[in-house]
Amino acid sequence: MTTLVRLVTPLVWRVPGHGARKLFGFARAEQGSRIDLLQAARLTTSLGRRAQYLRHAADETRHAALFARRSTELRTDAGKAGYGPPIADTEDLFERLGEVRFLAFVHRGEARGRRQFEVYAQHFASRGDVRTEQLFRGILADEARHEDYTRTLLVELTGSEEAARTELRRAALWEAWRTWRRAGRAIAGLVFALAMSVVYLVAAPPTALVSRLGRGRTRRQRRQRYLSL
């Protein structure tokens, strides 16, 4: 994974305008994480973990703001308006996965994020973009902390190192399944759009014709429905 990131980073971040878009995407991902952590804080049965999830959520809030601000700066430099507030939706991960699997999933996400951001920090350092480098370095430290505490909690909740590792493997499997479904949705979406376009072109003209003939849509008929029913 890290190798892939290393390979594509110089290319991806050099596409004009893409950097701002990517950073905004990161801001939305952080916002999405925040929503899931808030749900975790509401639903966990342990006071200690509730506080930990809340602190983590507060970090994600800050990260989202930092990414969004940098994205807006880059857009402004390019003479464009920013993308607005980073808004995310949610899959209710905690509710669906349960606390143990949720922790395993978050741990993997944080670890992956840390490795990815290390590459980005180096990349921007080598390009002399100190502002963006500092942004990633600052967030990196938090990611490492999140990685640690989720790991500790995972061992605590599963009872052993061994069991925690099993959970991490299961989380990896679940993630693969989810990635597969996301890809499936994208492909299904394309196939569906294509099918619908064909349906539209074949079926719309005759239907539209009959429909226009058959329905009370003249001005007089519309007005009549206002005057009395």
């Binding site: 569906f192 759009a193 619908m196 539209y200 239907t207």
Partner: peptide, 19 residues
């Protein structure tokens, strides 16, 4: 009905609306 009636302008909108 409303998407079909504005054929062919709604070509791009139709798949999304149906989805």
């Amino acid at each position: 009905v409303s998407t079909l009636e504005v054929f062919p302008r709604s070509l791009r909108q139709f798949p999304r609306a149906m989805a």
